[in-house]
Design a protein around this nucleic acid. Structure first.
Lengths: 172, 172
DNA sequence: GTCTATAAGAAGATAGAC
DNA sequence: GTCTATCTTCTTATAGAC
């Protein structure tokens, strides 16, 4: 059985990135916490960027899938599913929110806007007024904040109320 | 008349910090964009931290004032005033959201939680259920997101809808 | 107030032994 | 797979001339 060092590196990196930001975390801190040396990291990842990317990629893929492979439908159900998705990725979400600078490096800023636009489309249809867009920002942004602020609690404690508040913000 | 270099340094630093994060910005980039040299910065600020602090301090002071020097009252009015305050500081807000790692250095994380707690108190009174706290996170977090996402637009275009959506999220 | 020059350290990354 | 040793580059910060 092959070693799981690669996965352990990612786990520690995720922790540190979420704690103190991506740019703020050095390879040395990661290797120190793992009890290995810096060069050992380079056996598993081609570069620092490669490591960061490998951690953020699942969140990117899930978002892409969510906004493409989905037909417009019950807004309430969409809010619920969306909440569950951001909840699954809440640790990386904390990390990404804490270090938007990283987003630039990973072309995430454009993606974020595109996701938001498509989500609003799925929620409210093709023709959206500026007012509806702002309401959607409150709803979706507010839910993301919940995933971050209550990251340590069980989802059943957070999701129902967060979804209901988001629905109310949308005027549903 | 004394030079305004200090203020110009702060303006450029604010720009760069908001664009690419605090940690991601070096003194060299700041001095380069200003057309001066790095050591010149040290004439105006004792250290890098001193510069960062001087930029974030107004936001801190305004928040402190808002949550202390205010009596509980009409929630709607409080939402409006709160929106106006975060709107005034939206550039620094972008910067702070983009680099939460900085918050740790400035003890902002604890402050943020305290502000949120007091705002919820002002909005909903002393006894708050967990459900109300989550609704408040959607409302206040959603409004902050608006100040960031629509930072380039005139406030009259954003505020009324954002406040209304936040009020709906709170169940008002 | 701003400069040149430089110190002192930490970062990412690589070479080569084991 | 992981190590020691090292390279290069970039950072914050200081000394001292003008």
């Amino acid at each position: 059985m092959p070693s799981d060092t690669k996965a352990r590196i990612q786990a520690v990196a995720r922790e540190l990135f979420a704690e103190q930001g991506v740019r703020n975390t050095s390879l040395r801190q990661i290797s120190d916490r793992l009890g290995i040396t810096k060069p050992a990291l380079y056996y598993h990842f081609a570069s620092r960027d490669d490591l960061v990317r490998s951690i953020v990629q699942p969140l990117i893929d899930d978002h892409d899938r969510f906004v493409t492979a989905r037909a417009p439908g019950d807004p309430r159900e969409l809010l619920e599913d969306y909440f569950e998705m951001i909840w699954r990725h809440r640790q990386v979400l904390v990390m990404v929110l804490n270090d938007l600078a990283t987003l630039g490096q990973l072309d995430l800023t454009d993606r974020l806007f595109d996701w938001r636009r498509r989500l609003v489309g799925l929620l409210l249809g093709a023709d959206v007024t500026q007012e509806q867009r702002i309401r959607a920002t409150v709803a979706l942004g507010g839910m993301s904040d919940c995933a971050v602020e209550y990251a340590g609690r069980p989802i059943e404690e957070v999701k129902p109320t967060a979804v209901q508040a988001a629905a109310a913000a949308l005027g549903l």
